[in-house]
Design a protein around this nucleic acid. Sequence first.
DNA 1: TTAGTTTGTTTAGACCACATACAAACAAGC
DNA 2: GCTTGTTTGTATGTGGTCTAAACAAACTAA
Lengths: 397, 397
Amino acid sequence: MNPKATPMFETRASGQSSLSIVLGLIHEHRAITRSEICSLTGLSRSTVAKLVTTLVDLGFASDTGAEQIDRVGRPSMGVDASKEMLAISVHPEVDYLEVKAVAFDGTIVHSEKRLYDEPIGAYQAVADMVQVIDRLVAELEVSDTSYRILGIGVIVPGQINSSTGIVRQAPHLQWSEFPIRDLLTERLSMPVFVANDASLGCKAEMAYGAAKGATDVVYMHGTSGIGGGVFMNGTELKGFRGYAAELGHMRISSGKELDYSGIRGTLEALVRRDDLETVLGLKNVSDEDLEIALLNNRTPESTALARRQLEALGIATANLANIFNPEVFVLAGFLRFLYRFDQNYFHRVIKKHAIPAVLEGMQVFVNELGTNSLAIGASELVFQEAIADPAKYGKRK
Amino acid sequence: MNPKATPMFETRASGQSSLSIVLGLIHEHRAITRSEICSLTGLSRSTVAKLVTTLVDLGFASDTGAEQIDRVGRPSMGVDASKEMLAISVHPEVDYLEVKAVAFDGTIVHSEKRLYDEPIGAYQAVADMVQVIDRLVAELEVSDTSYRILGIGVIVPGQINSSTGIVRQAPHLQWSEFPIRDLLTERLSMPVFVANDASLGCKAEMAYGAAKGATDVVYMHGTSGIGGGVFMNGTELKGFRGYAAELGHMRISSGKELDYSGIRGTLEALVRRDDLETVLGLKNVSDEDLEIALLNNRTPESTALARRQLEALGIATANLANIFNPEVFVLAGFLRFLYRFDQNYFHRVIKKHAIPAVLEGMQVFVNELGTNSLAIGASELVFQEAIADPAKYGKRK
DNA sequence: TTAGTTTGTTTAGACCACATACAAACAAGC
DNA sequence: GCTTGTTTGTATGTGGTCTAAACAAACTAA
């Protein structure tokens, strides 16, 4: 019956199944006991037992022996997240292509970086991705462990329509209107997910970094421009078409400075990594070197510039605090050491421009996760999809 | 068993029950047929039949006869939203207190306004609310229809912590740190919900007004200050403590004008209703009169001021577009006719300051709902709660 | 009157999670 | 070493929710 029911609305009674919830816990904790799952979810022991065995059957988890703890009562059986389920992260940048394989338990199984002498076009980049991944898949297949790849997560430094998988604008890569997801799906025959780099950085910091446990987070990442990621109530702010959280283009001053998009007085126009390098007499140095130079070689000029930038950043932060009332604010990239240059001044600026109420309990952190941050975020993109529908992504149908 | 399970995490398998989904549809459509419910939800006919009868038993809906339509096949039975389930909206303002009763089918059953010669304090306002509501309840009890009041929705022009029900700051009322929800709950013995006025205006416009059907909406309401409401992906942006969406305090200029909170260069400092009145030689006039004066008596001075304000509003809108990528932007209060003064100019400003991608498909509307907008929003506050747990709020336990 | 369509109703069954009861595995105390 | 109390795993029956299938009911169109 119901042949042409076509539920036009997505309203389905299913909700989030208990299987997904338990799998999410296993993924989040990497290792957890059955009894912990009981107390965290409120599910009964019998239900948890059944769910865990199906997850083990699906290959997402492995049963470990009884956990040894000095406590009264029967020790609970442990459950480990699978080391064989993989997500592959792909990160194209101006001068390199980085590919990593992340296991469901968070370990980085594989990592490689292909360097480019000069920027390559979008289509060439896709060809390279396919080549690298195909070889990686072949390597993994002949290895001792029986790996299983759940999908690909692509990290794009630019605006993405996450529902269509089209790169709208990636100014530094000089890509535009590029349907990267469909191109990769076609040639790789596995699920491909695409997201903005800052969004993935935020996701990773929330899962395992500075914002762990927080549900309302604003994240700002400074590279050449300033990218943003926002999670409210645990879910990502995507907006109508998926271009939300373009925080760098927020106008905060009536000045005439232009940013990368030709808009005046924006955060991105006022807080520029290039200017910091210039005032310190540097050019094209790494974040580490720039941090050392900025924090240790303080000149009147560099101090004045850093303060100006900190003021702009503080005003932007206050604006965002008023708008979002976040629990945690995370500063990444060069904003990390701009903040460290004079964090007291930064907090004074915020206090001056934000409503007192929104600052109560708000915390400012710098990013904790290092080089693998984006890869972990990209793997989360894949894993969260698998967690939402374990039966579909698991081993035996 | 499981006596001290204490599920520390809220993760519960329940999800949104089908009963809630169907009740939501009935409330949204006011009148709907069983077969429409089937196709909208994807539920089977037998399930829908059972759910509808329980909802009728609970008093939320009434079964109507077969709907008469010229179509092949057996006509489907109609279901109407109850006219007896009520929510009471309470709106304290500087010079009045307005109380309305809204039925579950959206009709305004009762409406009254008590005027004040001079501002009254918070405690006196609560005493008046209790008095008015007690009398209203008594009146409704002796009426022909057997009304049933589900709860109270309080509309507050100020910052609210919606989880604690405390008014943090209501500058015009001169209330601060006032636990209005607990005070009312104590004296009225029914569920009380409190929310910000702009948030409720947005909720109402999304349910039955300019933003109907949209899921990503930014709403700005201009009265003395500028309040905001934001809904992303269908859910309200509340933030960590519930103070999110303070859009009026966004800083967009480096000018020295102060706003009501003493912050410089903010939207609220640049777009002021008072200034519009002054330039037109008016004082304390109604929105209707100000609109007529602004649109019909165009002087060089008023045009210049309106343009300056429109530019500031446009920059703020562009910022918010970049941040939220909304589907619909709703302008209410005096922003409504400020926009109408020169909407082409407004759109030009937006185009200049926003990323092109976020403007695709974005629509700017003025509010559609009139005087009952806030009451409807406040009733939604109560009704959504009842819809989430029909068994709790229904007639027979 | 007949055929085709659409909806309401009844019945049996699948699925999920729970409570209960019992067994198993531990620490602490005697 | 034995008992007691605690905590967890497992097996079984039950209740709730939703579905599929089959049939009856109510309509249009010819």
